[in-house]
Write a protein that binds this DNA or RNA. Structure first.
Lengths: 214, 214
DNA sequence: GGCCTAAGTTGACAACGTAAACATCTAAGC
DNA sequence: GCTTAGATGTTTACGTTGTCAACTTAGGCC
């Protein structure tokens, strides 16, 4: 009898990340509400309670996804910023676009990232710091824009809030679209607007940024 | 023996609306995810499956809330529009503000209204028509604004989309706040921005509307 | 080489959404 | 005014879920 090539699988080896990945994959096409830990466990091929060695609860899994999300978002934004340093106008638009694109590419993470603000941020300190860092990326840019006279001279939270509204609004509406599987009704004006938004998010960002231009 | 003063309670009389009301009350302070039909039934004082005579499923209850929501929203917007007819600038701002205020006053309905777009709009025709009507309120206003030269002359879906982004973004972020029960961190810039937004949503609306002004 | 501990499993529990069969009330038609 | 069909509410049951406690396995450290 040949040597057993399949090594012992009692220990999975990377179960924590497997759960996060499987959950993200699921959440791309369905809501957090309907996610079943047991179903994930079945997919991965472990027992129905294996995840308890890695996540204290279902919400803890979601929090882990959100933390991952904040870190990825921060990276994406930083990269966009470094890539377009020459002209502040371009920088700002590209950062906004990077935010939106990341959100629609990773709707499940963005959803968690936003939902996490609602529910249990106090319970997960790492989540709080991750969220602060992400928002600082925005306020720093706004401050710079005010300093160089690119934006109107108003309080930072006011301008940051307005721009957050814009990118979050776009991301949120586009996620609606990405989850509406087949409902691209031609006669639905709301769907039309979302379609328009989807095909050229940069145009809308550029438009809305005008409102805080000096 | 005196006549029985308590009439028969076998039939509740208004169970459908009671379920909607109880669900809304619950959803004001918690997520749809955690809502339990059996708990609602217990509160109302009926059996755990009584709702099946009125709602085919849990999602159907949510859809009913969303339909209610769309109708209420339409009413609120129409009223705001009629109340401020004199100056188009005022009209438009007030309609946006009415949208936002309604959303934060009825977060559970707004949430359902938005979530319904994601999940099962195709299954509930009444939901589709209700959502179309609400969006038409916006496009009609935009068309008028373009016609009188108040807005820049661009495609309606483009401008409507941009303004939808704004009011939905504000509403969405403010709902985040309203559900963050105690977390008004002073040192959290994101919370600061939301607080600012909350105290004067009109200012942000007026600011963002500038971006599509002629 | 034996043990400690992290990682995974088993079995159990209460709660949930849903379904089918049953009970009760209400109103419409004769 | 009685009958009866249909609407409304109940009971019982099933499969699934999140979570817990107790158990088993495996790999690294002395």
């Amino acid at each position: 009898m040949p040597k057993q090539t399949v090594v012992s699988r009692y220990h999975h080896g990377n179960l924590r990340q497997s759960f996060i990945d499987a959950a993200c994959e699921y959440l791309k096409h369905a809501s957090a509400e309907s996610l079943s830990l047991r179903e994930l466990a079945r997919e991965i091929g472990v027992s129905q309670t294996a995840h308890y060695r890695h996540f204290k609860s279902k919400n803890a899994l979601f929090a882990a996804i959100a933390i991952d999300g904040f870190e990825l978002l921060h990276k994406v934004i930083s990269e966009a910023q470094e890539k377009h340093e020459e002209d502040f106008s371009v920088t700002f638009t590209e950062v906004g676009l990077a935010y939106v694109n990341w959100a629609i590419t990773n709707p499940e993470k963005y959803q968690m990232l936003h939902d996490s603000l609602l529910i249990d941020i106090a319970q997960y300190p790492a989540l709080l710091t991750a969220s602060k860092q992400s928002f600082e990326d925005l306020t720093n840019l706004i401050e710079k824009g005010i300093a160089i006279g690119f934006f109107i001279p108003r309080a930072v939270p006011e301008l940051a809030g307005a721009m957050w509204v814009c990118v979050h609004g776009i991301a949120s509406l586009l996620m609606t679209r990405s989850k509406m599987l087949s409902a691209a009704d031609v006669d639905n004006p709301a769907a039309q607007a979302i379609e328009q938004l989807s095909q050229d998010p940069r145009a809308t960002i550029e438009l809305l940024v005008q409102s805080i231009r000096r």
